[in-house]
Amino acid sequence: MLLIPCPWCGPREEHEFRYGGEAVPAPAADNDDRELARRLFVRSAPAGPMRERWYHVHGCRRWFPLVRDTTTHELTAPPEARP
């Protein structure tokens, strides 16, 4: 189980959280089919550090960013993840 550093509550067990994945800009009204498909369905999945969002659903109920290495599951809080 991951021990996730919530910027407001401190380290808490993973099952208190919901995974939000990568944050991407919303599709624009004038996107063509190819661009729309990319925005809707394609997320980056790098082998290494990945910036993603988590939601502390059974805690403070706030969203926050986290950097997690997808090959080791090592977690680092990005500087802006501060209360």
Partner: peptide, 10 residues
């Protein structure tokens, strides 16, 4: 739920 290549889970 998370993206991973680590071949292990929680």
């Amino acid at each position: 739920p998370y993206t991973s290549y680590a071949q292990r889970g929680s």
